[in-house]
Design a protein around this nucleic acid. Structure first.
Lengths: 171, 171
DNA sequence: ACCCTGTTCTTGAAAGTTGAACTAAGTGGG
DNA sequence: CCCACTTAGTTCAACTTTCAAGAACAGGGT
């Protein structure tokens, strides 16, 4: 459905207004700077990128500190392939281990190890502090509320099925 | 300066409140979904990732459609290393070429080729449309203004020099 | 039991990214 | 002019991500 609007065949493109451009640039600017910042912070203090850290967090909050691979992939918004590689790396670190799923022989659980939990306990304070300094300490309470609302709306519009019905692949 | 708050030596960590956690999750959720979405959109329609597309945009808006490597890296918020690789790839595509800087023999200009400009002209409408659908079409004008304000504040707090004076390396 | 289709997860290769080391060229004393 | 120091950009190796297969199992029908 983008096809019709794309490239040569399309009708008049709806360009961004000046203000929209400014907002879009600020958005790109802020989000990339923050993601880079957190990636470096965690690489330095926890020895892993932000996404990997997020996987450990997910596991730490799951019922028995374990989760099916596919569910973890969905919750972390990454592909199963990426998750496979990531878990392999975390496993090599001793922070996660794999476990066969009893009910489904295809299935695997990723399980947070005690050691992995320790890493989280040690590094979480520094990470929260970094997030605070970058976001919550700089925004008014109203802005925090607004941001929450805005991000929620955007996220809703981007759930898997939206962009086209021709994307049966997970995520 | 994170050291003192990190891990074992620190004082009471300032955890996020429930609402802050919700906002933070929404933020991560929305930003990663959008970035993935745009990456796929551009990979499909323009044959390059979002960042590379951004480089072409930068060049197209620069005075003679060219820019010094370092300046381009700063403007695009990426490392010089990453830029080197990216330009090498874009050069292979024929969309950019390198040019020795006349005034500084160390310097290089990245120059947008006519072909590169053509790619931009063909793919920009589809990209703008994707951005609109994901963001501007879903937000009220007030929310757009709020988002702009918020992102500006966050970006200011993340400029290179903030995190510590002990980071002489570019970004 | 058998086949068919869809799901779960992994793998391998190519592409992209990172951080550090490196080359070459400008800069500013002494 | 020479030295040390900085800056511009590239390169290398290690790591991460993506995309396209592929192996193994599940859940129906038939």
């Amino acid at each position: 459905m983008n096809r019709a609007l794309n490239g040569e065949g399309g009708q008049e493109p709806r360009w961004l207004s000046d203000e929209e451009q400014r907002v879009w640039r600020s958005y790109l600017h802020a989000t990339t700077l923050l993601e880079d910042h957190l990636d470096r912070q965690l690489q330095r203090d926890a020895g892993m990128p932000h996404i990997y850290y997020g996987l450990l967090v997910q596991l730490s909050q799951a019922p028995r500190r374990r989760k099916r691979m596919t569910q973890l992939a969905i919750d972390a918004k990454i592909t199963r392939s990426r998750l496979s590689h990531a878990i392999a790396r975390l496993e090599k670190n001793g922070w996660v281990r794999r476990e066969d799923c009893p009910s489904d022989k295809r299935g695997q659980n990723a399980v947070l190890t005690e050691e992995g939990f320790g890493v989280l306990r040690r590094t979480a304070p520094g990470h929260v502090e970094a997030v605070r300094q970058a976001m919550f300490d700089r925004l008014t309470p109203e802005q925090v509320a607004q941001l929450g609302e805005i991000m929620q709306v955007m996220a809703e519009g981007l759930q898997p099925q939206d962009t086209g019905a021709d994307l049966p692949w997970l995520r």
